[in-house]
Design a protein around this nucleic acid. Structure first.
Lengths: 334, 334
DNA sequence: CTGAAAGCGCTTACAG
DNA sequence: CTGAAAGCGCTTACAG
């Protein structure tokens, strides 16, 4: 367990000062060709890598973009990470992740961790942190939020149009001829769940269809709640031929409930989800759903952070959802 | 964008030296009660948080465990992360993730990133890095590998018994009365895929069943390859009534192929996967599979790293797989 | 072009 | 118990 070489070791071996080694490392200032070659030679021979932590301290810039996420392992966030990595590529900044799991206390811990590790900028993905906490951070360093708003920092909040998404999903069902359309909502404490429901209601209203409270039940975005919600719906008197489920995970649960009851999809009931999770193309039948441009959103957020760090002006685009038609929805037939 | 307070600011305001502030922060040495109170007061009032990067530099310990993973967003790795976080909890170390995506070049980049950020220890999850590269790192700092071996460092490699897992899966099918059992393998360039196939072959042999090459086709662990492999199998002359698929993702694809052909699961064909992905309990029908104790493995790896960091002796347990029987497998009926 | 010096924000012997 | 000093591994004016 030998200690790794430092810039001074390299300097000594190459017969120059540490300053010079630093200069050839960073290419900031011209260095005499022979010294440059000597330094490079030692660096290669010793396979020297500068300590980026020390660099960060000296430069006052860690080269880190903190990403406050909710679930390290969700495929949904995964696509956003990919976008972030793409957006950061070639920028001298690297992402650093910490997850809050939708619990305010954990989110606070994760945020502190990112801040203490000197993240130069922050990307906040959804979550339950109060505006006030984020406002304070946003006042101190570049911050972009995805999936939530922060009062006073609206221009740094990148939101997808969930109302439109919910509308699209419901409209698709209506266009297929369905008239009695149920809805399993997400956790209504979350804005996105409320927005999707809002889209559902508007689509019904626009089509002159009545909103039937008995056809709406709240879930919590997890599979099991979709299953339970579908059971509840099936137990009620009100009938329906199609259902909009507020995310794909719950749609899986709902679909399983139908399977258990021997109700066919899409022959008896059409089902549409939201998110287009990776697995959704391989469910039986493949799930019709509404896609959020996750990767593009991640990329935009990363690019925006870099622009802020460089004091360049910001102009976040608006992100629209996209209907992905697969095989879980079909024409209504009487 | 005011600069955050430093330890000197706190010291000045509290009327003590920076050393004293440091001492109350770390609780290493007794500090007079009145000064301690004064310091704590300023810290709270200013909401001061020490710069952990600077702490790490001064201490020679970053407090970071690097986790070299393959896919940031896979639920499978996600469970391992959870285990790692649990194992690190309360240990003064935090995980830091970088992903290699099963590409040697990217894995090298990710490893470098972790090393440059001064990770005190490393947990390597699967991957394609040559032994030599990892041996070098393992010679310099604590390293634990999950899912792969490193020559000369076997005691630091935590492996799950894939042969046993493949055996269990196949044996389950045999116990249900199946005699003609197909197998979709993983990418055979990977050891785990070869081991699972080995388990399959051994189970057949132990039951006195012939190994039929026409019943085995290679996949690449992704959904689409499972679908394609199943189509290939169905196109062949050889019939089968059950199939062991080397992971759940491919099992989803294989199941979709059967759906398209109108072949019922498990009535016509039984199917068993491997991994017990989160979604597998909600497929139709819910998937029988073999579970790896992912969370326990992550926890063990994290604890082992901490032990190594504290120069305590190591004794990694062996991890066994577990059969999870759901509804995609059934008794063979003629 | 280049070295010595100061500094980034901390910790930790050292001396009292 | 406590402060001044040196040091962690770098960078960057400053002076030449």
């Amino acid at each position: 367990m030998t200690k790794p070489a430092t810039i001074h070791d390299i300097a000594r071996e190459a017969g120059v000062s540490a300053s010079t080694v630093s200069r050839v490392l960073n290419g900031t200032v011209p260095v005499a060709e022979n010294k440059r070659a000597a330094v490079l030679d030692v660096i290669n021979r010793w396979n020297y890598r500068p300590n980026v932590v020390a660099q960060g301290l000296a430069r006052g810039r860690a080269g880190v973009i903190g990403v406050l996420t909710q679930a390290m392992f969700s495929p949904f966030y995964g696509e956003i990470y990919q976008g972030i990595e793409q957006g950061l590529h070639g920028s001298a900044f690297h992402p650093m992740f910490a997850s809050g799991n939708w619990r305010t206390a954990e989110e606070t811990t994760a945020l502190d961790l990112l801040l203490q590790r000197q993240a130069d900028g922050l990307i906040v993905l959804w979550g339950t942190l109060p505006d006030q906490q984020l406002q304070q951070v946003a006042g101190q360093r570049p911050l972009i939020a995805i999936g939530r708003s922060i009062a006073g920092f609206e221009r740094q909040c990148l939101r997808v149009d969930d109302v439109q998404g919910g509308y699209q999903a419901t409209r698709h069902l209506i266009d297929l001829g369905h008239r009695r359309i149920a809805h399993i909502t997400g956790l209504l404490a979350q804005q996105d769940a409320r927005d999707r429901r809002e889209g559902y209601l508007r689509a019904l209203a626009d089509a002159g269809l009545p909103a039937e409270p008995q056809l709406v039940v709240e879930g919590d975005f997890a599979e099991q709640s979709g299953l339970l919600a579908m059971q509840a719906l099936l137990a009620r008197a009100a009938r329906f031929t199609a259902i909009f489920v507020a995310n794909d995970q719950m749609a899986y649960g709902a679909r399983l409930a139908l399977y258990r009851y021997g109700i066919r999809v899409p022959d008896d009931i059409s089902i549409i989800g939201f998110d287009d999770q990776v697995g959704s193309a391989y469910t039986t039948p493949p799930l019709t759903t509404v896609r959020q441009p996750t990767q593009a959103m991640g990329r935009a957020a990363a690019q925006a952070i870099v622009r802020m760090l460089n004091d360049e002006p910001l102009d976040l685009p608006t992100f629209a959802t996209e209907l992905i038609i697969r095989e879980s929805t079909a024409l209504y037939r009487n």
